[in-house]
Design a binder for these strands. Structure first.
Lengths: 332, 332
DNA sequence: CTGTTAGCGCTTTCAG
DNA sequence: CTGAAAGCGCTAACAG
């Protein structure tokens, strides 16, 4: 079942069949109709590999993430795939498992498959790999990594703005001892969040003594421990670098029979699905992942083979739920 | 950069290069060495599409799931991909979004990409589609759907056994009013769980009056509502068809200021990651998803082009955590 | 507007 | 054990 059979049945050349499949407008509606009906009758499906081979475009996109098991990613992946499907692209998703070697492997596999673009959503990236992709002539888009260059775009999330939204919310509730649970400082996105906390806290004349900073490793367990370490410093509110560690903090407080937000307020970052279901529901800074996915796709599509990419900005949104309230000391 | 350049550099024919790449043992170690070094020097990567076109094997597998956003799936997907990579297969993951039309679309897209096998892990399946895949000559494996047939394998999870484990655990704790939160009855896997509950409860001479059954839709919200509806019937323990609805039940009880397991015991099903982090930690029946992924891959690999598939069994495991305890009425 | 034809890069007989 | 050559199924000039 190949294009020749269709051509024969429709009594045209294979070129014409190819043209009508590709919706070239250089085909008379009449002949196109003949071809389509032949296609239907024979239940013909073009061979994508043959297509790729001769056209040079695979219509496959690569999406690299850290770990599909991390609740940050599923929404992103889902959104990216939906958009891709809509635009008739297939997507291959690969996990780096936070491992640089594995990241290199992912990139190479995608390059071998001759993908038409690679979206790297891991907030870490070896510059060497970007080069390689660029040399391969494949558009690439990353999350918070580097500046636009040849075929290279970047999506920039306004983490600082998000932290500022959170702190202002807390300050508005009269909190004055604001602790921070950091993420792994080797992650650029975690660094940025921490720096923003330090800066904005200072702007608001809040103490940021060492005791108010703890490391939460961006995990529930880490957040739990971090919160326990923070407790002796009597913070009135705690800002976590991501939702997972905020959830850990929530559990630690529950464990210590402290009330949230009665005794302490908690704010997360990311707005993973589960944040809506914690006890109490978590106030958090949302990263609009659907939007990120959309921009990533757009960036890949809009980067003509030889042009420079651009920088795409996305801003965060404070989602106020039940884990934040008036500072206990200032309540009537 | 193609196979010809390599052949030229190594001073052999393209056939020989092809053979050494494919590790045919019809190549002298000496010539193979020459070829490999040429490959390395030129940094040659075979074009997978050309390969697929002429060999007929794409080395791509399709993995169809309902929704990557459902916490049941990420582990499964991750495990499947790791195994696939290890064995040098690429995998394309697609979401049906619980929609039959979309499922058909997924299957067709995969067939168009000439995948070497399709794993459908959705616990729902149109028989028509299976036929189509079979006719296309592509091995297929499903989860709890139908009996083995030509190139068609099935993985059978022992849901009944799981329900039995849960009920026996509860009976051992002297519970006698055991409620059940059902899943959507159009899902075969949910039906099986419900039927098993009814049967095993009866075997143990427990009441299963209508009031002890509620619909939880396999979601947190659904579980919440279901639990509220169950409360007037004063169950001493509740078994949920999946963890999400068990988590909803937990929240409902918390909301009503009831203690788990002091007042009521709760058991979930699946053992999603988050079950370890609920308050209290959820006792649940684990479906070993890594094992399921492994078997699915194995099933696809071990189905020679024209042979019948087989049935692969996987059993569940009761994970006892903190949400179950002695029946309150029978405590000293 | 349609047909002819030369590849795309690799695998695979078939000879030798 | 190695090479020559015929495709795999499609696209893209180039003619007409």
């Amino acid at each position: 079942m190949d294009i020749r059979k269709v051509a024969a049945k429709a009594r045209v050349s294979t070129a014409t069949v190819s043209r009508t499949i590709n919706r070239s407008d250089a085909v008379t509606p009449a002949t196109a109709a003949k071809v389509w009906s032949a296609i239907r009758e024979l239940n013909y499906h073009p061979n994508t590999h043959a297509r790729t081979l001769s056209s040079g475009k695979s219509h496959i996109l690569g999406l690299i993430i850290s770990d599909i098991t991390n609740p940050f990613f599923p929404d992103l992946v889902k959104a990216f795939e939906s958009i891709a499907i809509e635009r008739h692209y297939e997507t291959i998703v690969t996990n780096t498992e936070y491992n640089p070697e594995r990241m290199a492997l992912c990139v190479h596999r995608l390059l071998d498959r001759r993908v038409d673009g690679i979206a790297i959503m891991t907030s870490e990236m070896e510059p060497g790999l970007v080069d390689e992709v660029q040399r391969a002539g494949v558009p690439i888009v990353t999350l918070d990594t580097g500046r636009p260059a040849k075929r290279f775009s970047n999506i920039k999330v306004d983490y600082s703005g998000g932290i500022r939204q959170a702190i202002q919310h807390l300050v508005g509730l009269h909190h004055d001892r604001l602790a921070f649970i950091r993420g792994p400082q080797r992650l650029k996105s975690a660094q940025v969040r921490y720096n923003a906390y330090a800066r904005v806290a200072k702007e608001n004349h809040l103490t940021t003594s060492g005791g108010l900073i703890a490391d939460g490793e961006h995990s529930i367990e880490g957040g739990f421990t971090a919160m326990l370490n923070l407790l002796p410093q009597k913070p009135t509110a705690v800002l976590a670098s991501n939702d997972l560690s905020a959830i850990g903090a929530l559990q630690a407080l529950h464990h210590k029979k402290l009330n949230v937000p009665g005794d302490i307020s908690i704010v997360g970052f990311d707005d993973i699905t589960f944040s809506r279901h914690t006890q109490p529901e978590l106030t958090t800074v949302r990263i609009p992942r659907t939007e990120v996915a959309r921009l990533a796709f757009e960036a890949l599509m809009s980067t003509p083979a030889s042009e420079n990419g651009k920088e795409w900005n996305v801003s965060t949104e404070l989602v106020i739920r039940m884990s934040t309230g008036q500072c206990p000391r200032t309540r009537s």
